[in-house]
């Protein structure tokens, strides 16, 4: 397994948010992390990256225990994070956002510019002046520039216009086809399920169901994902 998350628990101060999450991503696999709002998807991702280090359980990346490793070490071990809310550096240009934390590997500026031609057009612009969709492309490109073994996408299409969403999904499908391992959180099942090899559902900070997208029946969807 590339990523192996076992029984992690995490808290914000005194309030516990995760009570036991199990999940795994194999090499080349795309795993969908699902659940209603506030169920702990973002917290799970923050725990994996040691932004909120889990206080119990374990996270392993390609066999290496991530316990106690600062988040920059986790990133260097191969996790590329596209965080909720995008979090591009607003005071840097598009080009600077891409190269500031880049690490050598197969992904280069040229390849990112081919994946998202918009970024090439806007390379000298400040990130704060980009549209939401362009910022999302930038956040993905920025993560790819670190040449991760596992790409984590948290709500990458949230709040975007349909055309832009399609562009983002097309990019994600392309990345998967190239063999990149992906952990993805998204609300739109119609677009998420065709990409996913496996799904993991969280409820109240626990992983409660795992299986292939085909096994995610309307019943299960209604029970765990319906609003």
């Amino acid at each position: 397994m590339l990523l192996d998350v076992s029984k992690i628990e995490a808290s914000y101060g005194a309030s516990q948010a995760l009570f036991g999450v199990d999940l795994a991503v194999a090499e080349g696999e795309a795993v969908a992390l699902m659940g209603r709002n506030g169920m702990g998807k973002t917290t799970t991702i923050r725990a994996i990256c040691n932004l909120n280090p889990p206080r119990a359980g374990s996270v392993r990346l390609a066999g290496t225990d991530l316990k106690g490793k600062p988040s920059h070490r986790v990133a260097k071990l191969g996790i590329g994070l596209v965080p909720e809310g995008r979090r591009c550096f607003p005071n840097l240009t598009v080009h600077e956002n891409l190269v500031a934390a880049a690490r050598p590997g197969a992904w280069t500026l040229d390849r990112v510019n081919v994946l998202f031609p918009r970024l090439a057009e806007r390379h000298a612009q400040m990130a704060r002046s980009l549209s939401g969709g362009e910022q999302q492309m930038l956040a993905i490109g920025r993560a790819l520039m670190t040449n991760p073994r596992l790409l984590i996408l948290d709500e990458a299409t949230e709040g975007l216009a349909p055309v832009i969403r399609q562009a983002i999904w097309a990019a994600i499908r392309k990345l998967k086809a190239e063999g990149l391992s992906i952990l993805v959180v998204d609300k739109t099942l119609s677009e998420l399920l065709p990409v996913a090899d496996r799904c993991v559902i969280l409820e109240n900070g626990r992983s409660v169901w795992q299986g292939p997208p085909a096994a995610l029946t309307a019943d299960l969807q209604d029970r765990y994902l319906g609003v």
Binding site: C49, L51, P70, S71, H72, V74, A75, K76, G80, L81, P83, R87, F89, P90, N91, L92, E96, N97, A100, A101, R103, R142, A143, T146
Partner: peptide, 13 residues
């Protein structure tokens, strides 16, 4: 980058 979001620049390595 650290001035605007230090957690994020750390999460990028």
């Amino acid at each position: 980058a650290g001035e605007s979001d230090r957690e994020m620049i750390g999460a990028l390595g």
